[in-house]
Design a protein around this nucleic acid. Structure first.
Length: 661
RNA sequence: GCCGCCUUAGCUCAGUCGGCAGAGCGAUUCACUCGUAAUGAAUAGGUCUGGGGUUCGAUUCCCCAAGGCGGCUCCA
């Protein structure tokens, strides 16, 4: 007699036969690839117990996608070891939009190798191999995997420390019970197997042809620079071929928006080799963009009560000892210049100099909050391998401010700063944010990096956390991500195609005021130490410009466009008429250009389109006769015969309101 | 900094199994003056990233350096 058990399936109580598997429950829906049993993801082959709560997980659910990609990583590893039996396995977790697998091989993978691997993977997938879970003891696993030194190392780390051992290592040995997943062919023979926590999709068939091997690179074993480098192969996998194609299209769109490419096309900036790596120069059009950004940000700061200051690019080293930066960041600062018996450093941060301004005379509590702000040029010796366009440079301009406040004023000031930075970002067209709270972490490798007492850190962190919570935005913890002198909130902004960028930062610092001996005289006549709050709104002007170029794909809103209005005469005869129209606009501060080349009209239209100028004004006989112009917009739409005064008013209004057209 | 790949005209890229280098776009000039994404023709433009080596001969092969790209590590 077969006993029955009661399970809860997607919230409904059901009585089923003993030994029923999750697969039995969801057999009629092929999109269900894994199950969540009592909150844990399980293979569909998992045998249910009385009282289990079972939820179906679809292939296109976030969890389902992770499982799909992790299974695809196994197929990749099987393919690699089929082609090269000497390859040793590292780890192979799912990542955003795909997966990777690390291998120890004597020669790195070539692009041809990757194509070959893709073919081998397709054959494995077509075989319809099933993923079969098998529990093993630690001892048996060590024997079976004696040829896989990295796996053996992970077995030694299994349990609580595995997640810390390496990002992604948890997918191999995350649980208390070690398991091996065997890939079994239809004839029952074992094709391959891998130490793995699982779960997996039931069969490789589900991968179809919706996967791709994308690239390879080196990666340090367990993410540590001190360890051996392995060769990492990246891939992507999706529920359907259409999903894969859409993903590849997204990548292509990101490539089209690449600010390095658009910077050349739009003649905004360049990176001359002669200057050195990571040192951009801004061409006239990029210069306009940069100046518009700075002018606007400077004005908004002043409106919000900041005082604009200026400080030099270099300083004697003592200053950076006082601040505490030099011991921590000496290797990321440019080496010093010796002059008149002193060592001078290019500054990598502005706060020490602002502290000197604060300290230049006695301060009263009546002056607080005292908010100092500048576009400070800083230089950081970024490692050669990390330099990237405008987003990671060695010379940059920070829109940096320091608010000096009483401890009681700190929460309100932080709130003020957060609202201020969010409003600034919105003005530039970014309006989708979340926050990150970077804190001290004494358990990890960064232990010892932080100065100040635990109580001070706890208090500062709590203040930031409270303000962040009050904002209503999502808050993501970032343990260990704080600077040495205090915790920080950072604002992450999503751009037009969904990528996130770290923008503004707000840091609570109780250390530097002490190190600099900053004080103010309180109402009772006593001397008190202020708290300083660091804040960068865009992080760096360069980086933010890069983000804006990609966010707008080079098609800036009129107020930021290097050229706002481009005149295109239908024929040479109408150039004079257009010139008059344009000079009228220029007199009102509009940035105008006239296409006086001897190109034919269609070519001028093409050039105008490629330049991404927001307003193209066209004039021919019809327009001139009517005292009008014709608009052509970036989307190709047009409005003909608009009276000149009306056109001018529309253009000026769009610029003034900072709207996109 | 580490690993891999790459560096040819202003830009995008061919090419040379080692024998004094090509295209398109762009630029300049001439003709054309045209109503919504490329008119035609001509001309100029390159110590083939730099330095060493091998060779009768190196842009091509080898070594080193610089710069770029993709990752890793890092990012006050």
């Amino acid at each position: 007699m077969s006993a029955s058990i009661t399970v809860s399936v997607a919230g409904n109580e059901r009585s089923v036969a003993e030994a029923t598997t999750a697969a039995d429950l969801f057999a009629d829906d092929r999109a269900i690839v894994v199950a969540r049993v009592n909150g844990e993801l399980r293979d569909l082959a998992h045998v249910l117990a009385d009282g289990d709560a079972v939820e179906p997980v679809r292939i296109d659910d976030p969890d389902g996608l992770q499982v799909l990609r992790h299974s695809c990583a196994h197929v990749l590893a099987q393919a690699v070891q089929q082609v090269n039996p000497d390859a040793k396995l590292g780890i192979g977790p799912p990542i955003r939009d795909g997966f990777y697998y690390d291998f120890d091989v004597t020669t790195p993978f070539t692009p041809e190798d990757l194509k070959e691997l893709e073919k081998v993977m397709q054959r494995i997938i077509n075989e319809g191999q099933t993923f079969v879970r098998r529990e093993v003891s630690d001892e048996d696993a060590l024997v079976e995997l004696a040829g896989e030194p990295f796996k053996c190392e992970l077995i030694g780390l299994k349990g609580g420390s595995a997640e810390d051992a390496a990002e992604g290592a948890g997918v191999e040995v995350g649980g208390a019970q070690l398991t091996i997943y065997d890939n079994v062919r239809r004839d029952g023979t074992r094709a391959w197997g891998d130490l793995c926590r699982g779960p997996h999709i039931p069969t490789t068939k589900l991968l179809g042809n919706a996967f791709k091997v994308t690239r390879s690179s080196a990666a340090y074993w367990r993410g540590d620079q001190a360890n051996q480098q392995l060769q990492r192969v990246y891939g992507t996998a999706w529920p359907t071929k259409a999903d894969l194609t859409a993903y590849l299209d997204r990548l292509a769109e990101a490539e089209r928006r690449d600010h390095r490419k658009l910077g050349i096309e739009l003649d905004l900036y360049s990176f001359p080799d002669e200057l050195g790596s990571g040192l951009p120069v801004f061409h006239p059009k990029g210069g306009v963009l940069k100046r518009e950004m700075e002018d606007y940000v400077r004005r908004r700061h002043i409106e919000e009560g900041f005082l604009y200051v200026g400080t030099p690019h270099i300083s004697k080293e003592g200053l950076f000892h006082t601040s505490g930066h030099l011991p921590y960041y000496a290797d990321t600062m440019f080496p010093p210049m010796s002059m008149e018996g002193s060592d001078y450093y290019l500054k990598a941060m502005n706060c020490p100099m602002h502290n000197l301004i604060y300290r230049s005379r006695g301060r009263s509590y009546r002056e607080l909050p005292l908010r100092l702000f500048e576009f400070g040029s800083v230089y950081r010796y970024e490692k050669s391998g990390v330099i990237h366009g405008l987003t990671r440079v060695r010379g940059l301009e920070m829109d940096d401010s320091h608010s000096y406040v009483t401890p009681e004023q700190a929460p309100a000031e932080i709130k003020h700063l957060l609202n201020f930075v969010l409003s600034l970002l919105r003005d530039f067209g970014l309006d989708d944010f979340y926050l990150e709270l970077s804190t001290r972490d004494d358990s990890g490798a960064k232990k010892g990096k932080f100065i100040g007492s635990e109580e001070q850190w706890a208090e500062a962190t709590q203040i930031l956390a409270d303000v962040a919570a009050e904002s209503g935005l999502d808050l993501v913890p970032d343990p260990g991500g704080a600077a040495f002198y205090g915790p920080k909130i950072s604002v992450q902004a999503r751009d037009a195609i969904g990528r996130t960028w770290q923008m503004s930062t707000i840091q609570y610092d109780f250390n530097q005021p002490e190190r600099f001996g900053l004080e103010y005289q309180a109402a009772d006549g006593s001397r008190q130490q202020p708290v300083m709050i660091h804040s960068a709104k865009f992080g760096s002007i360069e980086r933010f410009m890069g983000v804006l170029v990609e966010h707008y794909a080079g098609a800036f809103p009129p107020w930021l466009s290097p050229v706002q209005v481009l005149g295109v005469p239908v024929a040479e005869e109408y150039a004079g008429y257009l010139r008059e129209v344009l000079s009228g606009l220029a007199a009102q501060g509009v940035r105008v250009e006239l296409d006086e080349s001897d190109d034919r009209f269609p070519k001028k239209i093409r050039n105008a389109s490629k330049s991404k100028v927001p307003f193209v004004l066209i004039a021919g006989e019809d327009d001139r006769a009517a005292g009008a112009v014709s608009f052509r917009f970036r989307d190709g739409s047009q409005r003909n015969g608009i009276p000149v005064a009306e056109a001018a008013a529309e253009i000026l209004a769009a610029i003034a309101s900072r709207t996109q057209v």
